[in-house]
Design a protein around this nucleic acid. Structure first.
Lengths: 336, 336
DNA sequence: TTGAAAGCGCTACCAT
DNA sequence: ATGGTAGCGCTTTCAA
């Protein structure tokens, strides 16, 4: 089985065969309105006969417009990103753009290298949850249009998921159910999202007169959630809001392992809605619609690309509480 | 906020800054062995300082090689794919290649269009679980090297995940635990994977003298799994092997809803290992290491690219049983 | 070991 | 309305 190998015709051959200049062939493809219709027709005919199609690479080199964009994420396998990637890809595709995907493996150096490598063949970047230092981001911004997702850098275009609104609703939901002592299981202290969620829980709790205690998950992972179960219980809380769905899922498992029934004996709320209704019981969670974030980021980038101007604005997306089956009124007090 | 203006450094600037010719810079990146090590070092240093990376587009125009490949999947959000994508991306990146990602949304027409659009700027394709008709695949194969994943087209390079081995091990595991009547919860009848798994279960069961009954999941999804729970019980089986982890997870939930304890009263085995240990109880499953498939596909493509020849061979990847906590000896018989 | 220069295929500016 | 031509950034002979 050998490799494919039919020779590809160039603009030159079409020009020769049609008896015109290369520039005329070029125009027939890019600005037909500038040409005599008869000429266009003849050129196109010859081109078709020869099986000619403009070489995108040569065109890109000449125009500096690539028809490509790059989407960079820290970890494709983190369930937060696939919906975002999918939506971004779909939107970009609609606009006729091809998308490069970069996985930085959570490593800033790798992210930096990736961006540098891609910079010469894309019209712009979407950086999701970038781990880069702010000045590194700004430096790249000096070369190519960039839209950030979940990263708040002043003066850059960015789409931010405002978990505060959904989080407040979650606390209210718990309060309405009768909970008066709840836990927040935190994520990475340096994470923008975590800071947001944490302070939103604290504030809402205070407003409603419920006590909020903070429990740190060793790591923002399933395992971290499992490990948080005893702490949450010994803090005598009756409900917990977790940094994200993975932590919540772990907490569910940890609780089950301790023979605590959810939601009868304890209520759990996740964040991000990446699990759908696939936990048991189906997880009540704060949806952050990462797909919307992906689509929106592309739209902002498209706008930036066509207008040639960056608004440098924060585009914030609301969140909402999705009530499923891990929340209920607190059961009778139980011994520690 | 205006558009970026700082230019991307070219080979020329690096040459000037390093006090050498452009060709020397070029060689420092492509054939460092041809140069004085000291020169290479200096050039690389300057390049790094300037943030220079070779322009793939210009390089492509000159060499005819793009330094890009495309990875096409039916649905980024299907948990089977992210690990595959991640591994493929990592391997390609190691080889210095950039990767385009295409999501076909399970639509053959879209897949076809995507491939056509990308063909002009990639050296080759990896098509994962392609939904294209065989002749469409062959047609594209005529233009660009292609490696298939989970699609068995004679004469093309392909990596196939052989679930048969792991499935047989699963049946044996169940048999050893004392199960004598098990269920297979099927997936899409037209799916190559499902056919494989189904027949493997049936064959292994027959060999071991266990009765296997087939239960169709309405859909190969979490919901399908939930819905299969009553059927599995009324068939008086004591264990089930599900088409994939999602179905298994659904079954777990369905069983829990019916107050059947897993694994005490019923054993469940999934397939693909996309959930890790994140179910409760942690799911025993047949690992299909989709990440290996992704990495392997890239390696085959790289080989094809460098040798200029396609072996047209099937590369089959074994699977193995990962025993976690959803399997145990059957409990006492229970009334329906 | 390094430099100079000719393209790769196309676009866009300047002429005509 | 059309032709001529100078690059776009890089690789790759050919010389030195």
């Amino acid at each position: 089985m050998d490799q494919p190998s039919k020779p590809i015709p160039t603009i030159q051959q079409v020009a020769r065969a049609a008896g015109v200049a290369r520039s005329t062939v070029s125009r027939a493809f890019t600005r037909p309105d500038m040409l005599n219709p008869a000429t266009v027709a003849r050129v196109m005919e010859v081109a078709a006969a020869l099986g000619y199609a403009p070489n995108q690479v040569a065109r890109a080199l000449s125009t500096g417009r690539y028809g490509n964009i790059a989407l960079i994420v820290p970890d494709v396998a983190n369930p937060f990103f696939p919906p975002l990637i999918r939506a971004a890809e779909a939107r970009a595709d609609d606009a006729g753009l091809c998308v490069f995907l970069g996985d930085t493996d959570e490593d800033p150096a790798r992210e930096d290298r990736l961006i540098g490598k891609l910079a010469a063949q894309v019209d712009g970047f979407v950086l999701a949850s970038s781990r880069l230092a702010e000045d590194a981001i700004r430096a790249h911004r000096g070369r190519r249009p960039i839209v950030l997702v979940n990263r708040d850098v002043e003066g850059l275009d960015r789409v931010l998921i405002d978990s505060a609104s959904g989080t407040a609703a979650a606390v209210r939901h718990l309060h309405d159910l009768g909970h008066r002592r709840i836990a927040y299981i935190g994520g990475p202290p340096s994470s923008w999202s975590n800071q947001q969620r944490r302070s939103a829980v604290l504030r809402a709790a205070e407003d409603l007169g419920v006590t909020a205690v903070e429990v740190a998950a060793q790591r923002p992972s399933y395992e971290g959630g499992v490990a948080a179960a005893p702490a949450v219980l010994s803090a005598r809380t009756t409900a917990a809001i977790a940094f994200d769905d993975l932590v919540a899922q772990g907490l569910l498992a940890g609780l089950a392992g301790l023979r605590i029934e959810v939601p009868a004996a304890f209520s759990v709320i996740g964040c991000d809605d990446v699990l759908g209704a696939r936990t048991y019981p189906p997880l009540t969670t704060i949806s952050s619609r990462s797909n919307d974030a992906g689509r929106t980021a592309i739209e902002i980038l498209l706008d930036q690309l066509s207008s040639g101007v960056s608004r440098g604005a924060a585009h914030v997306l609301g969140t909402e509480l999705i009530i499923r089956a891990t929340t209920a009124s607190p059961g009778p007090a139980r011994p520690i």
